[in-house]
């Protein structure tokens, strides 16, 4: 069952990658990247169980934290062209 779940998650990532490649707007690509991040986190957890190495969960945790911060940072960069810009002075 773990192997089947791993395969299904890989297929999910492939489909999301297709959406990222198709676009058409930058937000579609970012949405796909966000989904890929979430699924990669789940994939890390499931794969850790598959190989009997639950310490993969730490990697999943860090990956999740970075994923959210990454998406928000890229969004901010696209909106203001500057990571340090003040939200109000748009």
């Amino acid at each position: 069952m773990l192997a089947a779940a791993t395969l299904a998650l890989l297929a999910t990532i492939a489909l999301a990658l297709l959406r990222a490649a198709l676009g058409p707007t930058v937000f579609d690509r970012l949405q796909a990247a966000n989904s890929i991040g979430t699924v990669a986190m789940l994939l890390l957890a499931v794969f850790g169980f598959l190989r009997g190495r639950p310490d993969f969960l730490d990697l999943a945790l860090v990956y999740g934290l970075l994923n959210v911060i990454g998406v928000i940072a890229i969004l901010k960069f696209f909106r203001q062209g500057d990571l340090g810009a003040d939200e109000e002075s748009r």
Partner: peptide, 24 residues
């Protein structure tokens, strides 16, 4: 194991939706 399979299935459904839906 059943929950795992169901969850993976819903991930696939979501990915299909990501491709099928008309706009962002």
């Amino acid at each position: 194991g059943l929950g795992l399979l169901a969850g993976a299935g819903f991930c696939l459904v979501g990915a299909v939706g990501l491709l099928r839906m008309p706009d962002f």
